[in-house]
């Protein structure tokens, strides 16, 4: 395990808007003794452009991504959505030549964080402590395109002090959808309300998941709609931050980077 070399991919949304998730990912992988590298030239996987129908632009991002990451032994990202984009949707970008060749092998080495921990490293207990009631929202791309459902569950079950709720809740989209939420904000918000209310039923203190985009959308929905009668609004938190919390370095909601230091 110690010899595993991992290149960290921090999706643009996480890079710019959810730094804590990225640091938590670093902390988890380092705790496991993984040799971690980060190339600060990285930007975006191209999903936003691709989903908006701008294939040429998306191809540009894809080629850049492949150029930066094709040598990595493993590529790990704290996002199911971006990993799925690279792994599956690049197939629709008409890549050619060395880009196509490199992608065909690269796609087998890119993993979402929890998927990597459980399926590749065979780790489902990393000594985390998080003494709260937590519900999980399975993000659609992680769930349906990468088949990620059991992995986060296994990891959460082994977190000290954590009480898991909502386990049997039906999986449904939060209503974010990237460009969808920009084009149809009201509709997207109503879908977010629907999903957030489902998630509130078991009164979790936190809602977690593997994608910050969905969690941010849910956070907004909780904030806008207030709590259901008799309930309190849960906080949203990326699963990496739960897993990064230990008894010596407990979770701190105010911190912007891990360990509370910038």
């Amino acid at each position: 395990m110690l010899k595993t070399k991992v290149a960290l991919f921090v999706p643009c949304l996480v890079d710019q808007a959810a730094v804590q998730t990225a640091w938590a990912t670093v902390q988890i992988l380092e705790r496991l003794g993984i040799h971690l590298t980060y190339d600060s030239r990285q930007t975006c996987c191209g999903q936003a452009m691709f989903n908006a129908g701008y294939l040429n632009n998306a191809r540009g991002s894809a080629e850049k991504f492949i150029r930066l990451f094709h040598d990595a032994e493993y590529i790990i990202a704290p996002s199911g959505s971006c990993v799925s984009m690279v792994k599956h949707r690049y197939a629709d970008l008409d890549l050619s030549g060395s880009f196509l060749r490199d992608w065909e092998s690269l796609r087998l080495r890119i993993f979402e964080l929890t998927e990597f921990l459980v399926d590749n490293l065979g780790v489902d207990d990393i000594g985390s402590k998080f003494p709260f009631k937590v519900g999980i929202h399975n993000s659609c791309h992680a769930l349906r395109e990468l088949g990620i459902k059991a992995q986060p569950l296994k990891l959460l079950q082994n977190v000290e002090g954590l009480t898991l709720v909502n386990e049997d809740l039906v999986d449904e989209c939060c209503g974010f959808g990237g460009v969808f939420s920009a084009k149809y904000p009201e509709l997207s918000a109503k879908m977010g309300k629907h999903r957030s209310q489902q998630l509130e039923i078991d009164s979790p203190e936190f809602i977690t998941g593997v994608d910050d985009s969905c969690l941010m959308h849910l956070k907004q929905a909780f904030k806008t709609n207030g709590a259901l009668p008799g309930k309190t609004i849960p906080q949203t938190i990326h699963i990496a931050r739960i897993l990064a919390s230990t008894s010596s370095s407990p979770f701190d909601s105010e911190s912007y980077s891990y360990g509370g230091e910038v």
Partner: peptide, 16 residues
Amino acid sequence: KVMSGGVKPGGPGSFR
């Protein structure tokens, strides 16, 4: 929202 959600103005900057 895609670029801004969850970030406090004057926050500590990007991961990079």
